[in-house]
Amino acid sequence: MNSQDKTASQASVLIVVDTAAPLQPLFEQALATARRLDLQVQALLVEDHNLVRLAELPFATEVDRYSGVARRIERGQIDRAMRRQTQRAQAMLADLARQHSVSVAATTVRGQYLSEALAAALKANIAFLYRQGYRRLQGSGSRAALVAAAAPVWLYFDGSADAEKALQFGLQLCGANHSALKLIIPAATDKRFAALRQQAEALIHAASADHVLNESVQLKRRQQLPRLLREEPQSLLILARNSKLVANPQARNTLDEITGPVVLVS
């Protein structure tokens, strides 16, 4: 083990999931990464407190997902459902941790997912985030792709030093998973885009990972990002924790719209 590894071993991998949507492939990715990099794993299971508040409102109703019938919901009902979801997520995580021979410390909190996730991510080297969006995964094909971890990896590269770190991590992940790497380069002008692309490609070339790069996409407006990711719902987004998209409170809305798995790298 070299000095870099030693540093890494003191660091940790964080998993933050919405208990309503424990995603086994994401857990697996995170645990495999932790094992590969010899990092500790911490899991944060977030129960959405907005749901509790909804149930407490006097007119609280839900429309059934399948029948479209509206019915009243109550606080107790929501609590019980959340407890079940949390237990399920915990059991799944424990089971996978055993399989990957990784120890995991899991914590459950009740709050707003994004706030909790970003707050926790500050303390971790790598954070795997996922919460359920409206886009529910369909069919066995999608799940299989994620399990096989061969789904494409999007990397948000803004040219910063943190972005370069994130790129290094992305390359490692793609190498381990045999996934294709797709660069998302935020650039208002073509010239900027070309420069950032050149920078990224040089790093990729230096890592002898030219074959991993699949394509580079210019992101002129950050609002386009959720739609772009939506095109490939099985994909994983990697971005530096200190990137503007995360650090800038104004950009949080965009981040909030991303419902696929996200990895924050510091």
Partner: peptide, 28 residues
Amino acid sequence: IGMMQTPGGYGFAPLNKKGEVISPEDYN
């Protein structure tokens, strides 16, 4: 108004300025 996923479907609730569902007390 926020639209959110409930265990069995979807629900709607008024939001406060922080983007959170308002509490019953605030609503009242």
